[in-house]
Design a binder for these strands. Structure first.
Lengths: 142, 142
DNA sequence: CTTACATCCTATAGCTACTGGAGGTTCAAG
DNA sequence: CTTGAACCTCCAGTAGCTATAGGATGTAAG
C-alpha cells in the first residue's frame, strides 16, 4: 500500500495533481486509513501511469478519460481508441506546421536586427507591419 | 473614430479580448462618448495590431508588454527587443523538437493498431507501458 | 418623434491543467 | 512520548481569454 507521496514519486506526479485527478473523477476514490489518509494499490499505480504517459503525449484530460473508459472495457472494438490517437496525431502535425512557419519568421526578424536604436529595430518593425511577413500564421498561439 | 466592435473586426480580435487587454493595462483607456461607450483612433488600431501580430508569433502578453514599452521609446538601444525575439525563437525550437518526437510516437501507435478488440489495442498498450516507447518525451504538454 | 434592434456597458463566472499556501491532523521512528 | 515529515481540507491563483446576465446606448427607419 502506497501513500500519496510514494505514488507521486513513483509516477513523477505532484501530490496535489493526484488529488486533483481524484476530484475530477479521473482517479477513483482510494482507500483511507483510520486517520483519513489515502492509500493506493497497484491498480491505482497503473492507472496513474497511464494518465501521465498520455499527458506526456499531449492528450487532453478529456481524451484520457475516454481512453481510460475504453481500456476498462477490453471486449469493445478498438477503433475509438484509434480515432482518438489519430485526432491527437493530426493536432500535433498542425501545431508542427504552424511552429515551423513561426520559426522561419522569428529567424528572419532576429537575423535582420542590426543592433541600433529601437526606432530602427527590425524586430519591432516586423511586429508593427504584418504585411512584411512572408508566412500567414493567422491562427493564434502555437 | 471606431467603436469597439469595428476595431475588433479590423484586427480580428473579439470585443471581450480588447476589454481584457485594457483591463490588464496592455491597451490604454480609450476615449468615451457621453453615454460611456469606447471610441478608438488610429494609434489604438496600430497598437492592437501589434499586440495581435505578436500573439500570433507566440509571444506571451508579458513579452508583448516589454516589446510595446521598447516600441514607445525609439531612442533606447534595441538589443532588448532582439533578446526577447531570440528567447522566443529558442522556445519555438524547443517545442518543435518535442512535437517531432511526439509525432513519431503517435504515428507508431496508430500504425500498429490492427483494429481488433480494445484488449489487444496497441494504442492503449503503449499508453499502459511507457517502456515500449522509443522516445523520451518526459516533459509534459507540448 | 418614436420605436426597434444591434451594439454597447459592467460584473461575474468559467475554461484547461494544474500549483501553491494556510492552518490543522496523522503517522512512524527514535 | 515526543518529534517532525508527510498528510488532510479548503481556497486562491496562473495564462489568456470566452461566455453569460441584465441593462444602457446609438442609429436608422417609419
Amino acid at each position: 500500500m502506497l501513500t500519496i507521496g510514494a505514488l507521486a514519486k513513483k509516477t513523477g506526479t505532484k501530490v496535489q495533481t493526484i488529488r486533483y485527478y481524484e476530484q475530477i473523477g479521473l482517479m477513483p476514490d482510494p482507500g483511507r486509513t483510520e486517520g483519513g489518509q489515502r492509500r493506493y494499490g497497484n491498480a491505482d499505480l497503473d492507472r496513474l501511469s497511464f494518465i501521465r504517459h498520455a499527458r506526456q503525449l499531449g492528450f487532453t484530460l478529456e481524451a484520457i478519460r475516454e481512453l481510460l473508459d475504453l481500456s476498462d472495457h477490453p471486449d469493445r472494438p478498438c477503433h475509438e481508441a484509434d480515432a482518438i490517437a489519430r485526432r491527437q496525431l493530426k493536432q500535433v502535425e498542425q501545431r508542427l506546421a504552424r511552429l515551423e512557419a513561426l520559426r522561419a519568421e522569428l529567424k528572419r526578424m532576429v537575423h535582420e536586427c542590426a543592433g541600433g536604436r529601437t526606432a530602427d529595430c527590425r524586430v519591432l518593425e516586423v511586429l508593427r507591419d504584418h504585411s512584411e511577413c512572408l508566412t500567414d500564421h493567422s491562427e493564434i498561439g502555437a
